[in-house]
C-alpha cells in the first residue's frame, strides 16, 4: 500500500538553524493528525511538503511523488488551507474561489460551477457574492476551506482549521471534515493545537517536538486494542469478586476501595461481568474501557 506521506530522514534548515531533524515516517491514514507545541515544526513540515521550503537533507514523498522533482504533480493533488488569513479583500467569494479553481487547472465554466458548489457546501451559499474583506473570522476560515477543495484534491492539508471559530462554527468545521473523509476520495492532514479536534477526526497522529518526531500513534489500532482494558468500580468490597472474574479468563488486579483493573480475553462478552456481579449481589458503580486519551499520549510524548 502506497503511503500518503513518506518522510525519509528529512531535514529542513533556515540559515544555520535546523527546523526539522531527520524525520522518518510513513503515514497511511485517511485522516492524519499533526500535533506539537508552538515551534515544533508542524507548519514547516507542511510548507516543505508543498515545496515552499527546500529540504536540506533526506527526502519526502506525497502519494509517491518526490517533493524535489515532482512538485507540480504534488501541488496538483493537494489542497491547502493555511493557518493565517489568506484572501483578497476586494474580491467576492465566488470570484476568489473560481480563480483559485482555474489556477488549479479547472476550465473557467467548471471552476465557476465548482465555486458555487463548494461555497454552498461550506455554508457560505448566501454570502458568496459579498466581498471577502467584509467576512467574519469564521466565514474567512470557511472560504479558505472552499478554495482548498474547489479542485477536488486527493490530499487536503488543514493548518489549524478551527482557529478563531465559535463552538457552533467549530462543530460545523469538524462535521465538514468528517463528510470529506467519508466521501472516500480524499485524505486529510490536520494540524491543530486542539487535541480534541484531532482525537475526534484522526486515525493516525504524528507528534513533533523541537523538529523531531517524538511519537507516532495509530489511533484506530489503539482504539481497537484499548477495548480489552476495562476498569470497574463496585459499591462494596468483595474479595471473591476478583477470583470470580479470573475464573472467566480475565487478568484482574484489585486496586482497593472496590476498584478493579482487568484485561479481557479475546471474544469476551462484557455482559459476563454484569452477570458475575449480579450473582454476588454486588452493585457496579462504573465500568469503563481504560484507554489512553490523546491528551495522555501527547503529555507522555512531551515528557519524553
Amino acid at each position: 500500500m502506497q503511503p500518503v506521506i513518506e518522510l525519509n530522514e528529512l531535514s529542513v534548515r533556515f540559515g544555520a538553524r535546523t527546523i526539522l531533524h531527520d524525520l522518518t515516517v510513513g503515514l497511511y491514514g485517511r485522516v492524519i493528525g499533526l500535533l506539537g507545541p508552538n515551534g515544533a515544526g508542524k507548519s514547516t513540515l507542511i510548507q516543505t511538503l508543498l515545496g515552499f521550503c527546500p529540504p536540506a537533507n533526506g527526502a519526502a514523498k506525497v502519494f509517491g511523488h518526490d517533493i524535489r522533482s515532482e512538485l507540480a504533480s504534488i501541488r496538483a493533488t493537494v489542497g491547502y488551507m493555511p493557518e493565517n488569513d489568506a484572501f483578497i479583500a476586494n474580491m467576492s467569494a465566488v470570484s476568489f474561489v473560481r480563480m483559485m479553481g482555474e489556477l488549479s487547472g479547472l476550465p473557467g465554466d467548471a471552476a465557476l460551477e465548482r465555486a458555487h458548489e463548494v461555497l454552498f457546501f461550506v455554508g457560505l451559499g448566501e454570502a458568496r457574492y459579498r466581498q471577502l474583506g467584509t467576512y467574519s473570522v469564521g466565514m474567512k476560515q470557511m472560504v479558505k476551506l472552499a478554495q482548498a477543495i474547489v479542485h477536488g484534491p486527493r490530499l487536503l492539508i488543514l493548518d489549524e482549521p478551527t482557529n478563531g471559530l465559535d463552538p457552533a462554527a467549530r462543530q460545523r468545521m469538524l462535521r465538514l471534515i468528517h463528510e470529506m473523509r467519508d466521501s472516500g476520495g480524499m485524505h486529510l492532514l490536520l494540524c491543530s493545537h486542539l487535541l480534541r479536534d484531532v482525537e475526534e477526526t484522526c486515525e493516525e497522529v504524528l507528534i513533533l517536538k523541537a523538529g523531531r518526531i517524538v511519537h507516532y500513534a495509530d489511533l484506530e489500532s489503539e482504539r481497537r486494542a484499548n477495548k480489552r482494558f476495562v476498569e470497574i468500580q463496585t459499591s462494596g468490597n468483595d474479595p471473591g469478586f476478583e477470583k470470580a472474574l479470573a475464573g472467566l479468563g480475565c487478568e484482574c488486579a484489585a486496586l482497593g476501595a472496590g476498584r478493579f483493573r482487568m484485561v479481557l480475553p479475546k471474544d469476551f462478552e462484557l455482559r459476563e461481568i454484569y452477570r458475575v456481579a449480579a450473582e454476588r449481589d454486588l452493585p457496579l458503580r462504573r465500568v469503563n474501557y481504560r484507554r489512553d486519551t490523546l491528551e495522555d499520549i501527547f503529555l507522555k510524548a512531551m515528557g519524553s
Binding site: 515545496g51 504533480s73 501541488r75 496538483a76 491547502y80
Partner: peptide, 8 residues
C-alpha cells in the same frame, strides 16, 4: 500561499 500551493 494559496497561489503557490497550486501547480502555479
Amino acid at each position: 500561499p494559496l497561489f503557490f500551493s497550486r501547480p502555479f
